[in-house]
Design a protein around this nucleic acid. Structure first.
Length: 574
RNA sequence: CGGAGCGUAGCUCAGCCCGGUAGAGCACUUGCUUUGGGAGCAAGACGUCGCAGGUUCGAAUCCUGUCGCUCCGACCA
């Protein structure tokens, strides 16, 4: 490809609406352009890298035994009603109507469609296991698209769905995908690692996310460098000890705390109740039902855990009005020891199990209770792990301190079980003649997000540093004069022909620009290998070979093609 | 949906407070010079100042509304 033939609109300055480095570079390197918020056009170079990532995904999925299909982006709403997700996933569904008024959803994922397919086409255990995947445009009505391709209204996703006869089979399918993901991200030159994850609205009971460490990520991951434990903070647990049991008084005691409405205020004089001897009482509304949550004063509630443990589809903090109506006091004086309506469930964090000599609100503005024993004085409906892990807490497995860092989620594997196959009748006849629902798994990779994560992880002050495997072109030929009869251009043409014939992807910068401009652009775009051909080195019978992330070397012109071939074959230029 | 900010040339931004002929740098076109790391000089082209109302003799500037964009939060398969 010749530079002047394609379109590579590089920008010296980043557009003002780009915030993070990968988003700026996507725009500056001329890979994408924004049409609207969260909606982008892929320009020639951006599309080439996208196709390369897709191809790596495709090869590894095929290798893992999955088969490619293509499902519609337009999905009838009925199957979503049937699975129950029309309601639970409502806030992210793109809803459209055709001219006759019929409602459709634009596909954000395809569990319903693929399960319907399986229901119709798979009847026997002899047809299983199967794993169907597709690489396609997905739509999500993001309330706040941001960071370019990271969180967009439409994006390319690879989604795969496995169907097995047994739980063991489903685990094996899961493991195959897990291993395939590890290979895919490695081949993309990405340092991605798996972490235990919450399953969210998609359901299921076992899940890992593949994370790329990055300060600009939208997830927090807790991990232990010693034993390798790693989990999304939404899911992470630690080995932090429960609250110590102490000597205490025989009964609860009410005391006045005028104006004290925070844990911190109660921990100061004259009260001096340490946060870890206080019970934090929160009122939430879970699927329209008010619930009370108890966690220790120095802990933070994890709403994802709350949803997972209670099975609620939507939870939100109750309003002050709702709280006063329920408990008769405002936030700051709440507790679960007295005046709690019978019907209201009280969920307590495990860390409070056995806790006594605690202080909590009296459900009366300006009063607290002390000498509270959770066991003796509070009617707890259920105990759950509800707290958010903090950095430095002991690892639950090996007791070394946990660390927390930000990361970008690029892939997610779920073991679904029979949730969808039961609702959408994807059953098969087993060897013993009984009819059973398929045991499913689903596996996603955000392809466009992965592309941006590669840039986020691999760049410097000059621009993108593409791994060879996903670079839009492997080699950039840079003749410093471009007149057709000039020796530099003639040699460039010769290299172009030879390298292309040997299967190397080459772009020839035939622009009549000053050398500085061409060097800067090739570094901004991030081609792994550049061959500089100018009068000075030609006079010595040499050309310059520069790898994007390494040193410049002068080589004899005769040796140039072989040198480049060797660099490409090594996969990672010097 | 709450909070904050921004919409002026292809890009980055000034001008707005204090109303009076719409600007700079980069990019683009032409010419000359230059030619191994984002060149110099000269000439040129490019704007319904997001949109709609209002106030005013006069609005990029003041007022109201509206749309879009960005950030924080909520949300996130």
């Amino acid at each position: 490809m010749k530079w002047t033939q394609t379109l590579i609109p590089t920008l010296r300055e980043a557009p003002a609406d780009a915030e993070i480095v990968s988003h700026k570079l996507l725009l500056r390197a001329g890979l994408i352009r924004k049409l609207a918020g969260g909606v982008y056009t892929f320009l020639p170079l951006g599309l080439r890298t996208l196709r390369k990532v897709e191809q790596i995904v495709r090869e590894e999925m095929d290798r893992a035994g999955a088969v490619e299909i293509l499902m519609p982006a337009l999905q009838p709403t009925e199957i979503w009603e049937q699975s129950g997700r029309a309601e639970t996933a409502s806030n992210v569904l793109f809803k459209v109507k055709d001219s006759s008024g019929r409602a459709w959803f634009l596909s954000p994922t395809a569990e319903e469609v693929v399960t319907t397919l399986a229901a119709n086409e798979i009847n026997s255990y002899r047809q299983l296991p199967k794993n169907f995947y597709q690489i396609s445009l997905k739509f999500r009505d993001e309330i706040r698209p941001r960071f370019g391709l990271m969180r967009a209204k439409e994006f390319i996703m690879k989604d795969a769905y496995s169907f097995d006869t047994t739980d063991e089979g489903a685990m094996a399918s899961y493991k195959k995908m897990y291993d395939a993901y590890t290979r895919i991200f490695a081949r993309c030159g990405l340092k991605a690692f798996p972490v235990e994850a919450d399953t969210g609205v998609i359901g299921g009971n076992y899940s890992h996310e593949f994370m790329v460490p990055a300060e600009t990520g939208e997830n927090d991951v807790a991990f232990c460098e010693d034993c390798g434990y790693a989990a999304n903070l939404e899911k992470a647990t630690s080995g932090i000890p429960k609250t110590a049991t102490r000597e205490m008084g025989p009964a609860m005691e009410k005391f006045a705390t005028p104006g004290v409405v925070t844990i911190e205020a109660l921990s100061k004089p004259p009260y001096q109740v340490p946060a870890n001897r206080q019970i934090k009482t929160l009122v939430y509304v879970a699927d329209s039902q008010p619930i009370i949550i108890l966690i220790r004063g120095d802990d933070q509630l994890n709403e994802t855990k709350l949803m997972a443990r209670t099975g609620a589809v939507a939870v939100r903090p109750a309003t002050v009005e709702e709280i006063v109506a329920l408990l008769g006091a405002k936030p700051g004086s709440l507790g679960a020891a007295v005046k709690v309506p019978e019907v209201v469930k009280v969920f307590a964090d495990d860390r409070l199990q056995g806790a006594n000599d605690m202080t909590t609100g009296a459900n009366e503005d300006g009063f607290h209770l002390k000498n509270v024993s959770v066991e003796r004085d509070i009617k707890v409906s259920a105990w759950f792990d509800l707290r958010t892990v903090s950095a430095g807490e002991p690892c639950g497995k090996c007791h070394k301190p946990l660390k927390i860092r930000r990361a970008i989620e690029v892939g997610h594997v779920f073991k679904l079980g029979t949730k969808y196959s039961e609702k959408l009748n994807a059953t098969f006849l087993d060897a013993d003649g009984s009819r059973k629902p398929s045991v499913m798994g689903c596996y996603g990779i955000g392809v466009t997000r992965t592309l941006q994560a590669i840039i986020e992880q691999s760049n410097d002050k000059d621009g993108v540093i593409w791994p060879l495997s996903v670079a839009p072109y492997q080699v950039c030929l840079t003749p410093l004069t471009v007149a057709p009869e000039s020796p530099a251009m003639q040699l460039a043409e010769k290299f172009y022909t030879e390298l292309t014939a040997r299967g190397v992807e080459v772009i020839l910068d035939d622009r009549d620009e000053r050398p500085g401009v061409k060097f800067k652009d090739s570094e901004l775009v991030g081609f792994p290998i550049r061959i500089g051909i100018g009068e000075k080195s030609l006079a010595k019978g040499e050309v310059e070979i520069k790898s994007r992330n390494g040193a410049l070397q002068s080589v004899k012109t005769e040796a140039a093609v072989e040198t480049v071939l060797r660099l490409v074959a090594e996969g990672r230029p010097v």
